[in-house]
């Protein structure tokens, strides 16, 4: 039985007088791999921030895990990989293992489990992203793609049900981007983690996602990525809004 994890209902959001989101409604079912695409300034990051509770809701409603967003407390259900993961302080004296361990924090309370048990979770997560051999390497010494894998490990170490990624391939070199998407598909298939992937690049994600959501202030398309691919360019630009530059997909 499918289970709705996120339900966004008629959300409108403004910064000062500038409307960034207008009457947005959509839902995310458990097990989906949703691609949320749109040009720069289309409100992608804003809707993510609203879903994560980082930004206050102005109009409309959002339900996460069946609860209104303001009543939802994240106890490890939702995790997040931000686009800023690439602009952290590279000189920060921490090993990959220590960075992954940060993801466990929300499970820790007064009675913290023993370190041995924690280590096991950390290595498991590192293994899932194929980074076990770098456990003791300083985070600043890894390449952009490897760092992003470590950040993925950090966000899955707590075994979340929903993982939201905001432009995670920024700073990852092109050869590694495809590998990165394969890793995400694996998390979705094998671990059953529901994914919301935000990107400005429709081209490369359509082959991996199960649902495509095109956003440009309002939602222009929501459905199957293959139907979207079969459309003509003209239909697409209509859906997308005329100010959108469509990236064609060559496969």
């Amino acid at each position: 039985m499918s289970n709705t994890l996120i339900n966004v209902n008629d959300v409108t959001h403004r910064y000062d007088r500038h409307t960034v989101l207008e009457n947005i409604s959509f839902s995310v079912e458990e097990g989906a791999f949703v691609g949320l695409v749109g040009p720069n300034g289309s409100g992608k990051t804003t809707i993510i921030k609203l879903m994560l509770g980082l930004e206050k809701l102005q109009k409309g409603s959002i339900e996460t895990f069946g609860k209104p967003i303001h009543k939802f407390t994240n106890k490890g259900h939702i995790s997040f990989v931000s686009q800023k993961a690439n602009s952290f302080n590279r000189g920060f004296p921490a090993t990959a293992k220590e960075v992954v361990g940060m993801g466990l924090t929300s499970k820790l309370s007064l009675l913290r489990p023993t370190t041995k048990k924690l280590e096991h979770h950390i290595y498991e997560a590192l293994d899932q992203v194929n980074m076990s051999e770098y456990a003791n390497t300083n985070i600043g010494d890894l390449s952009g793609g490897q760092q992003q894998r470590i950040f993925i490990a950090r966000s899955i170490v707590n075994k979340p049900r929903l993982l939201i990624l905001d432009e995670p391939t920024v700073g990852v070199d092109t050869e590694n981007v495809e590998q990165f998407y394969q890793l995400l598909s694996k998390l979705n298939d094998e671990l059953g983690i529901t994914l919301i992937l935000v990107s400005h690049d429709i081209g490369s994600i359509t082959t991996h996602v199960t649902d495509l959501l095109c956003l440009n202030k309002s939602i222009h398309y929501h459905g199957n990525p293959s139907d979207f691919e079969n459309m003509t360019d003209e239909q697409r630009s209509k859906l997308y809004g005329h100010d959108m530059h469509t990236i064609t997909h060559n496969h």
């Binding site: 994240n74 490890g76 931000s82 302080n89 921490a94 960075v99 940060m102 924090t105 950090r154």
Partner: peptide
């Protein structure tokens, strides 16, 4: 966690 990445720490609750 807050020293390393404040946004992630906040999202984690």
């Amino acid at each position: 966690a807050l020293s390393f990445d404040e946004e992630f720490a906040t999202v984690s609750g």
